[in-house]
Amino acid sequence: MSDGLEDMATLSVPPPFHAVCSGPSDAFLRAVVEAEAEAGAATLVWSSRPDLVDLAVVFEPEMPLRQARLVGPVLMLAMADALAALGPPQKDCRFAWPGTLEVDGAEVGSVSVTAPAFAEEESVPEWLVAGVKLRLSFPPDVSDPGKTPERTALYEEGFGDVTGVEIVESFSRHLLHWTNRWLEEGGEPVAQEWLDHLAPRLLGGAVKHGLDPRTGDLLLLDPGSTKPRRMDLAAAQADPQA
């Protein structure tokens, strides 16, 4: 198992991304600082922590905030593709709304999104920051990860030969692909692919799941109903534990 530190100086991301290392500090918080300082779109901040893939990207959307929030599902798809490219077979990354990433039925990470304070949902925000945290290994004080089967780490799932740097680099390439596809084709391909990654336990029940391709809102259709219930992505991103 590699700690990933030996490769930190050679991080390679495709244009137009500009990589900024936050050291061991929180990448999401650093990205917000960068955004407020007008660092510009495609600033990719990443942390050097050996136990965690911790990265965040600054966006400057040209659409209202409500629509731009679909960047959360876009990041989830990019990370799922990165893990599929690097990890062992049959260890697919699955999703739970609004931003949970799962491997082998257990939570391994999450996606977060924030915008400037007081930004209005129907207006174009000055910037948007979206980040991913992905657990590589459990802390040393966790002696038996099996006691928390609802949570896992990549190194517990057969990703031991993969470094955090490799994941960040692969993620950046897939994020470029999914961002371009979103902007060129609209949200429909994003919504459909996101639903294809939905955790099996969510697909197997009586409630049918959908994702609004314009906003990323979750749509739930109960048995016998003709009108889906709508779960607001803006509210969920503001309080993902709610």
Rank of each mutant, 00 (worst) to 15 (best):
V129L: 11
E107C: 11
P88C: 02
R201P: 00
A39N: 04
L136A: 04
G164M: 04
M63Q: 14
V53E: 01
T215K: 06
L52E: 03
W194V: 12
L52I: 13
K133V: 14
E185Y: 03
E188W: 03
G87M: 09
R69H: 04
L134S: 03
V111E: 01
A19S: 15
A37C: 14
K91G: 00
V168F: 06
T226F: 03
L86H: 05
G186N: 07
V71R: 14
S12E: 12
L86M: 06
F95L: 07
A56H: 03
D104S: 15
P16S: 13
G87F: 10
S2M: 01
V168N: 02
Q90T: 00
L233F: 12
A117K: 12
G164L: 05
N180T: 15
R201A: 14
P16G: 12
S25Y: 13
A80I: 05
K133A: 10
S110C: 12
E34S: 08
G109S: 01
M1W: 11
P89L: 10
D141T: 13
H18N: 13
A68H: 06
S25E: 15
A236D: 04
A117S: 09
D161A: 12
V142A: 05
P61E: 07
V129N: 12
A106L: 09
L44D: 00
A68D: 02
A199R: 15
D81Y: 14
K91H: 15
S12C: 12
G216I: 04
A42M: 04
T148F: 08
D51S: 14
L202I: 13
R230N: 10
G105N: 02
G105E: 09
F159M: 08
T100C: 01
L65R: 14
V113S: 13
E121F: 02
A106W: 07
S170K: 04
A206T: 08
V129G: 08
H197K: 12
L29N: 08
A19Q: 13
S12Q: 15
A85Y: 01
S25I: 03
Q90D: 15
L176I: 05
A117I: 08
V168P: 01
G87S: 10
L176H: 14
G186Y: 11
L198T: 13
D104V: 05
K147C: 04
V57K: 08
